[in-house]
Amino acid sequence: MWIVILPILASALRLATPLIFSALGGTFSERSGVVNIALEGIMVMGAFFSILFADFTGSPWIGVMAAILAGMLTALLLGVVSIHLQGNQVVMGTAINILAVGLTSYLLQIIYKRFGQTDAITNALTNNPTILAFLEKLPVVGKAFFSGLTPFVYLAFFAVGLSYYVLFRTPFGLRVRAVGEHPKAADTVGVNVYKIRYICVLISGALAGIAGASLTVGYTAIFREHMVSGKGFIALAAMVFGKWHPVGALLACLFFGLAEALSIQGSMLGIKIPTEFMHMLPYVATILALIGVVGKAVAPAADGEPYEKGEN
């Protein structure tokens, strides 16, 4: 019994990991009032640059650092346009998504001299981290569950805890939420709205960059065009479904991950769930959350609204 369930849970966690990082990124950005449609594009950048740097330096962790940097730089673009220039955040986010696909495809051809995909790296972070090797020795759960987890799975949970603490237990987090709800009021009491929003958009980029890295360096060991295949949008859906809360986002991502893991393993267990249904699930869940069927999801009040300093 457990021997069947545990691998499914491990699979669900692996599938949820990139979503968790990305959804946390979305939460930070939107809590501060910047809609981040660009998660998908930032993930593409993170996925590509992590493999690129891991391949050339031989160190997967340098790859992860590169993904964070690439993610932050991409997010900065969104920040400049939506914060300083008060441009339309959704339009800019969409532009970044298109840019990321084009840019990575272009760099792929320049650097690897071929279309479509990079070389595979040989030292991907796909095994249970060495410091936690003792977990694999546990009876039953060791081999069936812990041996299937990657370092990113643990990091994702750590990131959720940290995000919750920062957003809800620190003065900085209070400012972030204030800026996202009522930037003018925050400004009046001396909070630098632009600074807070920039910081949040950069955190968002870093997290979505890690999300991309967790897909490649942390799982497939190779980058291929179109491999992110909508995971950024599913993360966005998870963020809404999770009501712009780190723990909510975590639960939503685990739910989506479990649904996909079940659809993969289900047919072998004799349960046939149509894969089309599983593909609809994140979006159906989001719609249900938005129309209030599972408790109303309300966005931060100033989400998507550019803020102009000194406006009356």
Binding site: R14, P18, Y219, M227, M268, T275
Partner: peptide, 25 residues
């Protein structure tokens, strides 16, 4: 023979996930 469809021709992560599931079985 375990038969599984990925519903994609590009999602590498899903391919690895399915293969791992079949291997575990």
């Amino acid at each position: 023979v375990y038969v599984e469809y990925a519903d994609s021709f590009g999602d590498i992560a899903k391919g690895k996930e399915i293969a791992t599931a079949q291997y575990n079985k």
